[in-house]
Each structure stands twice: as structure tokens, then as C-alpha cells.
């Protein structure tokens, strides 16, 4: 990695605030190299693994599998729709880019959830911590998405790793916020009941607060995944690859057709991901037992 010289260019056009930020970034670059290398190898491993696993099943196996999942979780009609959509992607020759986009989304949102959910839980019971977290989240959400690309490139060069990290930062706020909200919204009397039956604080979290907050947390998971998808397209500018790359090529070459195809594939992926993860937020999941769900699934085939 030969990036240590890079920041020197950027200070020139920035005012004092930007200059301070740039100095900080530069300091980090010079002193934090081992940490960045560790993060890089971790993220690289994760995205690589995700892409490898998703590439193993051929399209003719993957598409029906997704359709089946859709039939189970959403509806029969949506299963047909997603099957058609995936076939369209395959027909446009965009299957592989879609898979790498999906891998990036999965890796980035997984990391966002692993970091975000504990932060949300932690901040729910600590007012002062939340007072700090909240403005940071506001900042993360309102900062234009492109801005994340610059430090990401500086720390991690170009490619999958900075794309994943920029995506992870951009997509984390909703899950933190909604986890916080979900836990805060657990009715007071349930908390009291938990305590009255002798719960320790960790039992209270695992047995009372989290199960009750689950639908709200899942809404956060859904939002995070959707934001990750939108950011992954932008991250193609720093070599994220996948469908974003197709769109980017469309823009660069003023190729309306190519841009449209890439955009359409993104929309199809987005709709499928959205509906599937949204089904996790419904109370049905938390209220139906496994046998009930299997029965519902069987009824689906016998009834229609």
C-alpha cells in the first residue's frame, strides 16, 4: 500500500475545517496502518466468502430457491414476480454482477448489524451514551453518500473493501435507531413483570426486551439492507463492482440502454430484498410457531 502520500493533494482546496479533518485522516494513515490492514483482510475475507457462496448455486437453482422463499414468506404472487424478475436479470446478462452486488450488500449489512444492534441496545439504557450517539447518527445519515468514498479510498485503496466499509457506515444508522426505539418502546409493565419475577439485567434483555423489540429491530434491519443496496451502487465509483459498475459504465459512455438495464436489475434486486426482509418485521413471524408456518405453507399449495 503506497497511499501515504495521497492526502497531501487534498488539503490544498479545503478550508480550515476540511484541513483539520484531512490532517486527522493523514495522522490515522501514518499511525494506524496495522489496524487498517487487519480490517481490510477481515472485510475482504467476508465479502469474498459471501460472493463465493452465492456464486456456487447456478442461476437455475438460485432463482427457484428465491421464489420458494418468497412463496413462504410473502405470497405466491410475489414468488411468480420474483421468478420473472430474476429471469429478466439473467436474460440481460447481468446475473454475475447482481450476485457480486448482493454479496457486497450482505457483507456490509451483516457488519452494520453486528456493530449497530449492540450500539442500539447499549444506548437504550444509557441516556448519556445516546446523547453522543444520536448526533453522530444524524451526521452519518445526512452526510452526502459520496463523502464516505474519499476516506474509504484513502484508508483502503479502491475495490471491494472500501466499498463495503463506506456502505457499512452509510447503512448503519437505521438499525441503531430502530433497535434503540424498539427497546425503549417495550411496555413498562412487561419490564416490571420481568423484574418482579427475579430477572437479572441480562435475562431482562434476552427474555423480555429483545423478544418484544424484535419487530422494530427487524424494521431497522430492512432499512439497513435497503440503504446498503443504494450505497453499493454509488460505491461502484471506487471499484465496488457489480451492478453499480454497469450503471456507472452507462453514465460514462452515455449509453442509455446499458444504464437502464443496470438500473432495472438493481430495482429487481431491491424489491426482492425489501419484501423478503419486510416479512421478518411482521408479527406473524413472532406469533406463528414453526408447525403453524409449515401448515400455512402446505395450505398454500393444496389450496391453490
Amino acid at each position: 500500500m503506497n497511499l501515504v502520500m495521497l492526502p497531501l493533494f487534498t488539503i490544498v482546496n479545503a478550508g480550515p475545517v476540511g484541513g483539520a479533518m484531512a490532517t486527522t485522516v493523514e495522522w490515522l494513515l501514518n499511525h494506524g496502518q496495522p489496524v487498517f490492514l487487519l480490517i481490510e483482510s477481515l472485510v475482504n475475507g467476508l465479502t469474498g466468502a459471501a460472493e463465493f457462496i452465492l456464486s456456487v448455486p447456478p442461476p437455475w437453482l438460485m432463482a427457484p430457491f428465491v421464489a420458494l422463499l418468497a412463496a413462504w414468506r410473502v405470497s405466491f404472487g410475489f414468488a411468480v414476480l420474483s421468478l420473472l424478475g430474476l429471469n429478466l436479470v439473467l436474460f440481460m446478462g447481468l446475473w454475475q454482477p447482481m450476485i457480486s452486488t448482493l454479496a457486497l450488500v450482505i457483507a456490509a449489512s451483516l457488519l452494520a448489524l453486528i456493530i449497530g444492534i449492540p450500539i442500539g441496545i447499549f444506548s437504550a439504557s444509557r441516556k448519556h451514551f445516546w446523547a453522543i450517539t444520536r448526533p453522530v447518527l444524524d451526521l452519518m445519515q445526512t452526510m452526502p453518500a459520496f463523502v464516505y468514498l474519499i476516506p474509504a479510498v484513502m484508508f483502503f485503496s479502491t475495490g471491494r473493501v472500501p466499498s463495503t466499509i463506506a456502505t457499512l457506515i452509510f447503512s448503519m444508522p437505521p438499525v441503531v435507531r430502530l433497535t434503540h426505539l424498539g427497546i425503549r418502546q417495550v411496555p413498562k409493565d412487561l419490564i416490571e413483570a420481568g423484574r418482579a419475577f427475579g430477572c437479572t439485567e441480562s435475562q431482562l434483555l434476552w427474555k423480555v426486551q429483545l423478544p418484544n423489540a424484535l419487530p422494530t429491530v427487524m424494521a431497522g434491519v430492512n432499512q439497513t439492507i435497503m440503504l446498503a443496496l443504494s450505497m453499493v451502487v454509488i460505491a461502484s465509483m471506487i471499484g465496488g463492482g457489480g451492478l453499480g459498475d454497469v450503471v456507472l459504465r452507462g453514465i460514462q459512455q452515455l449509453d442509455v440502454g446499458l444504464g437502464f438495464e443496470g438500473g432495472l436489475a438493481v430495482v429487481i434486486l431491491a424489491v426482492i430484498l425489501d419484501r423478503l426482509t419486510q416479512s421478518l418485521t411482521s408479527n406473524e413471524l413472532t406469533r406463528k410457531s414453526m408447525p403453524q408456518r409449515i401448515r400455512a405453507f402446505r395450505d398454500l399449495w393444496t389450496a391453490s
Binding site: 411496555p187 409493565d189 412487561l190 416490571e192 413483570a193 423484574r195 418482579a196 419475577f197 427475579g198 430477572c199 437479572t200 423480555v208 423478544p211 418484544n212 424484535l214 413472532t286 406469533r287 410457531s289
Partner: peptide, 25 residues
């Protein structure tokens, strides 16, 4: 910890609002 042990072994509470856990049977 002692109070928690006492609550588990000595006294149970019934609430006006029932306070049942909605995701449990």
C-alpha cells in the same frame, strides 16, 4: 442479587394490566 433470588423463591406478582409477554404462549 439477593433480592433477585428472594423474588424468585419467595414472592410472585400479578399485575392489573396482566403484563403477559405477547410473543409467548
Amino acid at each position: 442479587a439477593e433480592i433477585q433470588r428472594l423474588r424468585r423463591s419467595k414472592m410472585a406478582m400479578v399485575f392489573q394490566s396482566f403484563a403477559l409477554f405477547p410473543q409467548r404462549t
